[in-house]
Nucleic acid binder design. Structure first.
Length: 258
DNA sequence: ATGGTGGACAATCCA
């Protein structure tokens, strides 16, 4: 089973890029974040016409998640389930047989002194509760992918010192993220890819940022031990970030013997 | 030196 993730920064603007990647890699699941479109305007027919199933939950201009799958999921749900739909466009969960694939777009947080940062910390705490209420990490096969907006170690950002107070790298956010991981996840990305200058995101605003590799690892692939134990590879499609009309993130994928 | 670009969507907001 091949599971992939991509923060597309508008599914409509990146539709051809996404369809080309699907055709090339034929994943079982592609998790998308920042689709930036309401459900009535989501380009579902473009995916279905190319032979894919797609489930999505979005809103106008911001956020939005989608799950593109080869087979129809037995279940597809959205949101953390503890609100009035606020978290829907940030979390998708599908079940394919006994495998659960979770897709999150964790709030970015804006600045450490902003209310949005407290919302981010609470959101991560709520995610741990969401998992604990539904799964047993020792028994259930759960694969968690997505834009987690956290670079959890100094090796996960090109200049760790410069970003000590950044919402994606400061000690408070790393602690909040680690609490979710400690619920029961193995870092499948790190199992296969060395902790040196291997990133998934390069800021649009830095001149030649990709060529200079001024990146961050803020897109994640994690899994509970019963699923992580079967992973055989993980890769970042850096070439896709260099193509015309890229997102600032790129595709990350992992293969499991599931 | 606190910039830069990209997307949505219509003046800025978010990243």
């Amino acid at each position: 089973m091949l599971v992939a993730t991509y923060n597309c920064n508008s599914v409509r603007a990146r539709l051809e890029t996404i369809l080309a990647w699907l055709g090339r890699h034929k994943p079982d699941v592609l998790a998308l974040q920042e689709t930036k479109v309401t459900d009535d305007l989501f380009p579902a027919e473009a995916f279905r016409g190319a032979g894919w199933r797609v489930a999505f939950r979005g809103q106008k201009a911001y956020n939005g998640v989608a799950m593109v799958t080869r087979a129809e999921p037995e279940e597809a749900t959205f949101g953390l389930g503890d609100d009035d739909g606020e978290s829907g466009p940030r979390l998708a969960l599908v079940r394919l047989g006994d495998v659960h694939v979770l897709n999150t777009y964790v709030p970015q947080g804006q600045a450490v002194e902003a209310e949005a940062f407290q919302f981010k910390l609470r959101w991560l705490a709520r995610l741990r509760e969401f998992l604990a209420a539904r799964f047993d990490p020792a028994a259930d096969k759960v694969i968690w992918v997505g834009d987690v907006n956290v670079a959890p170690t100094p090796a996960d950002v090109y200049d760790s010192k410069q970003f000590q107070n950044h919402v994606c790298h400061c000690p408070q956010v790393i602690e909040a993220f680690q609490a979710v991981v400690d619920w029961g996840f193995v870092d499948v990305f790190r199992k296969h890819i060395p902790a040196e200058k291997n990133y998934t995101f390069w800021d649009f605003r830095l001149p030649r940022g990709v060529q200079r590799n001024l990146g961050w690892r803020i897109d994640a692939v994690l899994a509970t031990p019963p699923a992580a134990g079967t992973s055989i590879e993980c890769f970042v499609d850096v070439e896709a970030r260099k193509a015309s009309k890229p997102s600032d993130h790129t595709f990350v994928a992992a293969r499991f013997e599931l």
